[in-house]
Computed example of a mutant assay.
Amino acid sequence: MDIIVGIDVSKERLDISIAPLGTAFFVENSHAGLDDLIRRLKATHGAEASCVVALEATGGFEMLAAAGLSSAGFAVLVVNPAQVRAYANAIGRRAKTDPIDAEVIAAFVAATRPEIRPLRDAETQALSALVDRRRQIVQMIVAEQNRLRMVVETQAQQSIKRLLAALRRELDSLDADLDEHIRKSPLWRVRERLLVSVPGVGPATARTLLAEMPELGSLDRRQIAALAGLAPWTRQSGQWRGKSFIGGGRGKVRAALFMAALVASRHNPILKAFRDRLVAAGKPRIVAIVATMRKLLTILNAIIRDNKPWQNA
Results as ranks from 00 to 15, higher is better:
Ile3Met: 10
Gly6Lys: 01
Gly6His: 01
Asp8Leu: 05
Val9Leu: 11
Ser10Tyr: 04
Ile16Met: 06
Ser17Glu: 12
Ala19Thr: 11
Ala19Asn: 10
Pro20Gln: 09
Gly22Trp: 04
Ala24Tyr: 00
Ala24Cys: 11
Ala24Asn: 14
Phe25Gln: 01
Phe26Pro: 00
His31Val: 13
Ala32Met: 02
Leu37Glu: 02
Leu37Asn: 05
Thr44Leu: 12
Ala47Pro: 06
Ala49Lys: 14
Val53Trp: 04
Glu56Trp: 00
Gly60Ser: 07
Phe61Asp: 09
Phe61Asn: 14
Glu62Arg: 00
Leu64Phe: 07
Ala67Val: 13
Leu69Trp: 00
Ala72Trp: 04
Phe74Trp: 01
Leu77Asn: 03
Val79Phe: 08
Asn80His: 12
Gln83Ser: 15
Ala86Cys: 06
Ile91Leu: 10
Ile91Gln: 06
Ala95Pro: 06
Pro99Cys: 08
Ile100Thr: 08
Thr112Tyr: 08
Thr112Trp: 02
Glu115Pro: 00
Pro118Val: 07
Leu119Asn: 03
Leu119Cys: 04
Ala122Met: 07
Glu123Ile: 05
Ser128Phe: 03
Arg133Thr: 10
Gln136Arg: 12
Ile137Cys: 09
Val138Lys: 11
Val152Phe: 10
Glu153His: 13
Gln155Ala: 09
Gln155Cys: 08
Ala156Pro: 00
Ala156Phe: 03
Ala156Trp: 05
Lys161Phe: 02
Lys161Ile: 15
Lys161Tyr: 06
Ala166Gly: 11
Leu167Phe: 15
Arg169Glu: 13
Leu171Gly: 09
Asp172Asn: 14
Asp175Ser: 09
Ala176Tyr: 03
Asp177His: 14
His181Trp: 05
Arg189Gly: 10
Glu192Tyr: 01
Val196Glu: 05
Val196Met: 03
Gly202Arg: 10
Pro203Lys: 15
Thr208Pro: 03
Thr208His: 07
Leu209Gly: 01
Ala211Ser: 09
Glu215Ser: 10
Glu215Arg: 07
Gly217Asp: 00
Gly217Leu: 01
Ser218Leu: 14
Asp220His: 13
Gln223Cys: 04
Leu227Pro: 02
Ala228Thr: 03
Ala231Tyr: 04
Ala231Glu: 05
Ala231Cys: 08
Gln236Asn: 13
Gly238Lys: 00
Lys243Pro: 01
Phe245Ser: 11
Val253Lys: 00
Val253Glu: 04
Arg254Gln: 03
Met259His: 03
Ser265Ile: 02
His267Arg: 10
Lys272Met: 09
Phe274Leu: 10
Arg277Ser: 15
Ala280Asn: 12
Arg285Leu: 11
Ala291Arg: 01
Lys295Phe: 04
Lys295Met: 08
Lys295Ser: 05
Lys295Asp: 05
Thr298Gln: 09
Ile299Thr: 03
Ile304Pro: 01
Asn307Pro: 02
Asn307Cys: 11
Pro309Arg: 08
